[in-house]
């Protein structure tokens, strides 16, 4: 499916900026990341299949992944060179199966949350928005947000049968 990139950027540009800035609050870093996202969109748009999900969903996923990758690479550059054991980062088949099971249980647990709690949870742990940003946008204090997140975490831990890992 061919979509006009400019049209996409005109319609979703604000949303993309919003998702990226939640993870990369620094203006310059966010703009660098946004440039990378535009490249990825340009590469992927022609082959994007709408049946996989809505365009907004795909765009936010691309933005999120790009911003997290950008943040990690910035962190690696800032720290002393600490090579990760790259060879061990890929999960084995057993570990992959366990991860899949955990994801399923976590999804089921998330569905037990109210819509409002679930949305807050995703803002914090998927879109990686800061507590300060969450507090301002929800019209409350950071302390109230922290308290709410604490209760949500406790509830998820109970649903998942205690400690997760």
């Amino acid at each position: 499916m061919a979509c006009d990139l400019e049209e996409i950027l005109s319609q979703y540009g604000g949303m993309m900026d919003y998702v990226i800035r939640g993870i990369l609050p620094q203006r310059q870093e966010a703009e660098e990341c946004l440039a990378e996202v535009r490249k990825k969109l340009a590469e992927g748009l022609s082959s994007y299949d709408l049946e996989r999900g809505s365009l907004a969903t795909w765009i936010t996923a691309v933005c999120r992944h790009a911003a997290i990758d950008h943040r990690r690479s910035l962190a690696r550059r800032r720290e002393a060179a600490m090579e990760e054991d790259v060879a061990d980062s890929t999960p084995g088949p057993e570990e992959a199966l366990l991860q899949k099971e955990r994801a399923l249980r976590l999804r089921q647990a998330l569905m037990t949350l109210s819509e409002r709690d679930r949305r807050l949870f995703y803002r914090k742990y998927y879109y990686l928005q800061s507590t300060a940003q969450l507090a301002a946008e929800l019209g409350t204090t950071e302390r109230a947000v922290e308290g709410k997140l604490y209760r949500i975490r406790k509830r998820l831990q109970r649903e998942l049968g205690g400690e997760m890992w």
Partner: peptide, 21 residues
């Protein structure tokens, strides 16, 4: 954060357009 990456919001009924300031 790692786990949620594999559970995009739309899979639990949350639309991205709903996340606004």
């Amino acid at each position: 954060e790692e786990q949620l990456a594999g559970i995009p919001p739309e899979t639990v009924g949350e639309e991205p357009e709903g996340f606004t300031p």
